[in-house]
Nucleic acid binder design. Structure first.
Length: 199
DNA sequence: AACAACCTCAACCGCATCAGA
DNA sequence: GTCTGATGCGGTTGAGGTTGT
């Protein structure tokens, strides 16, 4: 699939662009099997691929990596994405990290094509329902308050990450536990509003 | 059948951050 | 401390597929 002009990092020489061929995939997978998924520039060179390292990394991460699930996002996964997005915002890589076999790109695409519409619709509906109740606070508002509170305390962009750090690094970090227990995560996320209230 | 409008998703871009020299 | 290249991330694009007229 031909794309726009070359990025600055791929201008040095003529590089292949657009859709990957099966042959390219095979070459890339072979080299990564031997050398591992690092030093992408040299991986591209070793594989004899006329691709920039960035492109190879993306292809590996989103398509060739082992244990990648493709398509058919289950209702449970969808629910999890919705909850995690409510909690973390557009931090796709973090959300993907909690969904074994799913990539940030896939989740981002799924969100943009399916869930964002669903959420908007839901919001519209609930807005209509709660209009009379004049209830000013929903979870999102609470979350924004929390972020604002933190920024008042002098948190910068770098510190913004730290507002999640106790979650990410502690009880929320499942990376070391092998395959994620989705049920457990869903249950945990049921606590998200309580957590935001607490924060 | 033909065309338009819409949808999906692989791939690219630009920027931020990290790591090593 | 600074520079530079590598890596990672979120946003965006556009080809190809699907659906509607």
């Amino acid at each position: 699939m031909p794309m726009a002009p070359m990025s600055s990092q791929c201008t040095k020489k003529e590089t292949n662009r657009g859709a990957w061929t099966a042959e390219e995939d095979q070459k890339l997978a072979q080299v990564i099997e031997i050398h591992g998924p690092k030093r992408w520039k040299s991986v591209a060179a070793k594989a004899g691929l006329n691709r920039c390292g960035k492109s190879c990394r993306l292809r590996w991460m989103n398509y060739l990596r082992p244990n990648i699930k493709r398509g058919n996002i289950s209702a449970q996964e969808e629910d999890l994405i919705l909850r995690l997005h409510k909690l973390l915002g557009n931090r796709w890589s973090l959300i993907a990290g909690r969904l074994p076999g799913r990539t940030d790109n896939e989740i981002k695409n799924y969100w943009n094509s399916h869930l964002s519409k669903k959420v908007k619709q839901k919001e519209k509906q609930s807005r209509g329902l709660v209009a009379e109740e004049s209830r000013p606070q929903n979870t999102k508002v609470k979350e924004m308050d929390f972020v604002e509170k933190r920024s008042e305390e002098g948190t910068s962009k770098g510190d913004e990450d730290s507002k999640f750090s106790h979650i990410e690094d502690g009880l929320f970090d499942c990376s070391s536990e092998g395959p994620l227990n989705l049920e457990w995560m869903s249950k945990f996320l049921e606590m998200d509003e309580d957590w935001l209230e607490f924060a």
